[in-house]
Design a protein around this nucleic acid. Sequence first.
RNA 1: UCCCCGAUAGCUCAACGGUAGAGCGGCUGACUGUUAAUCAGUAGGUUCUAGGUUCGAAUCCUAGUCGGGGAGCCA
Length: 440
Amino acid sequence: MSLLPTTTIAQIAAYANQTVTLAGWIDHKTEKGKLVFLMLRDGSGTIQCVVFRKQVSETTFSTAQQLTQETACRITGSVRADERAPGGFELDVHEIELIHLTHDYPITPKEHGVEFLMEHRHLWVRSSRQHAILRIRAEIMAAAQEWLNAQGFVRYDTPILTATSAEGTTNLFATPYFDQGNAYLAQTGQLYVESGMMSFGKVYCFGPTFRAEKSKTRRHLTEFWMLEPEVAFATHADNLILQEQLLTAIVQRVLQQCRRELEVLERDTLPLERVQPPFPRITYDEALDLIGEHHAEVEGCTPLAWGEDFGAPHETLIASKFDRPVFVEKFPAAIKAFYMQPDPDRPEVALCADLIAPEGYGELIGGSQRIHDAELLIERIQAHGLSLDDYQWYVDLRRYGSVPHSGFGMGLERAVAWITGTRHIRETIPFPRMLYRLYP
RNA sequence: UCCCCGAUAGCUCAACGGUAGAGCGGCUGACUGUUAAUCAGUAGGUUCUAGGUUCGAAUCCUAGUCGGGGAGCCA
C-alpha cells in the first residue's frame, strides 16, 4: 500500500482525459455555492481542481467545503484541458482523501511584513516566490557541479572545523574542541582545496562557510555557501576564462530549465541572456579612473586614492557601465589576502580579480593566482602577522612539486540573488543566518 | 560598531494629548466558473517593556528590548 500520487502536476499534460490521483497541499480555495475550486500544490506545480456538487458524493463535497489553506490531501479526478484554467489543465474531482486538516495557517495570500515572514521561514518556503527562488538555487548548484565535473574537476571536500583562521584576523565563530582549545568554523575552504589540486589537478570544494562579521546589509549572511575551484598550472588569465565559462554555463542552464520560476519571479531575462564570454576586464587602476569620472552618478560613491578598496557604491557604479558581469583585476597587493601571487611586472599589485555582478548585486567571485614559491609565501605570512607554525602544512604544498596555480570562490547566495533578481540575500537560502536571526 | 526609521486585533495598517478603528484573515449564511471571488452578518485589544510629564498618554520625554533600512567589512 502506498500513498504516492499516480502523477505530478508538472506531468499533467501527458494525462489528459485520464483519471489520476494527485497528492499535495491546498494553496487556495474558492467556494461558489454548489461548486468548489481548489488550487492544489504538489511541489512540481499547481493545478485547479473543480468539485461540482452534482458529480460527487455528499461526503466528498462536504470534504471539499472543509478544506483550508495548506491542508494535505489526495485528490482523484480526471484531467481536462480547459482554457479557463491557469496552466491549461484542470482536474474534475471524483474523490478527496483528507490526510491532514490544517487550522489557522499563518501565512495568508495577503501581504506580510519581513519580521513576520522570517519568524515563519519554515512555512514561508512553501510560498510561490520562495519556492521559485529555492528551486533556482538547486538548479544553480547542480549546474555548477555538473559543468565542473564534465570539465574533469573532482569534488574535494574541505573541513568545516578548523584550527586557525585561514585568511588572517577576520572574525570567526569559535567552538570548544575537547582539550585543544577552540576550533573555528571555516570561512573558506581555499587553503585546503589547494592540497587537492596537487593530487587531482582540477578540484573544487562546495559547502557552507562562516563569517562572524557584524555585517548588516542585504548582501551578507553569517553562514553562506561557497564554490571554490582550484586548478594546477592555471595562470591568472586561465583563471578568468574558467570563471566566465562556469558562470555562463550556470546562467544559460537556469534560463533553459527554470523558465517558469523566472516568470513567477518576474525576472527580466534579457540581462541574463547577455551573459556570454568574454566578460569585460578592467584593471583596478582603470576602475579608479572610472570612479573618479562618474562618482556623482551613485549616491555615497566617493573618489578613491590608489590603495583604497571599493565599497558597495563603487561596485554598483562599475557594474552600471557594463552590460554583463565585469572583472576588476590587479588590486593593490596590500589590500588582498597573503597568498596572492604578485604581478611579476608590477609587484605592488596582485594577480587577482573580482567579478562584479550587473544590476548592483555586488561581488560574485573573488579569485587569484596563488603564490607557488615557498620563500615568498613565508615572507607574506610573516608580513601579515600570521603564525608560521599554523601554516606549515600549507607551505609544505610549495616544497614538493610546487606549480603555479589559480582558483576562486563564488558566493552561491550572491549568484542566486542576482540570477533570480532577489533584492535581499535572506531569501536565497532556506534558513538564512544573519546578525540578528538564528531562529528558526 | 555607527547613522536613520519603526513596534497598535492573527496579518497589513489608521487614530490632532480627549470614547482604540478599517481592510484582510477566522467563524456563520447566500451564490455553478472562481483566479488575492463577491455580498450579508459576527467574534476579536495588557497600543513592546519600565519609568516620567499631564486633569487626561497609543500619541510627549527618558531608558531598555526587539525589528527594519543603510554604512563599514566581505562573497
